[in-house]
């Protein structure tokens, strides 16, 4: 396990446009390996737009233009000969609202390995158990793996979605406000889980809650109106912000 700060992902001069609307302006940052980086800022500041650029989710939507360089282990993920599908295999994503497929719990977790070529049922069961255990959901669902995932509670569904991502063994996990639709108890379970995940994965998480960012992240980036204002170790951002605007936000002077 690495304790030094290897750089996992690197973003240089990223610009994102929705049609003619300039949503991200010249953002550059580096994501250290095996840590949690939080992206904070008021709603509409572009933090979700930013995180979706990190695994080329914008490719799915027409009228979105992404410019700049995003590298994973030094390789430009927007290079011409790079298949976005393999990029998303290496960089998984958990969304704001839990989005389990309308299939059984097992099928949800087995989906990823299956599409990547795992056929054996025994192997799939192993992967499912390991991923569900890792997502701290195994004990709650082990007796009903064949039940529909939609029967689970919101918090369980979100942990299932995390297990689903773990099952494809990505290197980076992006999370777009993964707890915003959950109650406080479910939220704290997700937060514990994230703390656990950073041992094996690099995590980038968008959150609207500064407390959450303070609790779980090692580094924090603050966005405002499409601009990356400040980035640094979470402790520094919260206790000695360099920029006036960061300070205003931290102290609650923006909505």
């Amino acid at each position: 396990m690495t304790t030094t700060t290897e750089i996992k992902m690197c973003v240089e001069d990223l610009n994102v446009y929705y049609g003619s609307f300039h949503a991200i302006k010249d953002a550059s940052l580096q994501v250290p390996e095996n840590g949690v980086m939080a992206l904070i800022g008021p709603s509409g500041c572009g933090k979700s737009t930013f995180i979706r650029a990190l695994n080329r989710m914008h490719d799915l939507v027409p009228d979105v233009t992404v410019q700049g360089r995003v590298t994973l282990d030094g390789e430009d993920i927007y290079a011409k000969d790079v298949d976005p599908v393999t990029i998303r295999h290496r960089i998984g994503m958990v969304f704001q609202r839990p989005n389990p497929f309308p299939k059984s719990i097992f099928e949800n977790v087995a989906y990823g390995p299956r599409i990547h070529g795992v056929r054996s049922r025994k192997r799939l069961l192993e992967i499912a158990e390991r991923s569900l255990r890792h997502a701290a959901l195994w004990d709650e669902v082990k007796d009903r793996l064949d039940k529909s995932a939609l029967e689970l509670s919101g918090g369980q569904q979100q942990r299932l979605c995390i297990a689903r991502v773990l099952a494809v063994e990505p290197e980076v996990i992006l999370m777009d406000e993964p707890a915003s639709a959950l109650d406080p108890i479910a939220t704290s379970k997700i937060e514990d889980l994230i703390g656990d995940l950073k041992k094996d994965y690099t995590v980038v998480i968008v959150t609207h809650s500064m407390q959450q960012a303070a609790r779980i992240s090692d580094n924090t980036a603050f966005f405002l109106m499409g601009e990356l204002i400040e980035i640094g170790p979470t402790r520094d951002i919260f206790f000695k912000p360099q920029d006036k605007r960061t300070e205003d936000y931290i102290t609650g002077r923006y909505g």
Partner: peptide, 27 residues
């Protein structure tokens, strides 16, 4: 079918056809 189904599948590294076949059509 909600867009999150498609996003969820694509974010796992599925191709568009895999997404259509294994997620969109069943949903």
């Amino acid at each position: 079918v909600h867009i999150s189904m498609k996003e969820g599948s694509m974010a796992l590294g599925a191709t568009r056809w895999q997404t259509i076949w294994s997620v969109m059509l069943p949903a």
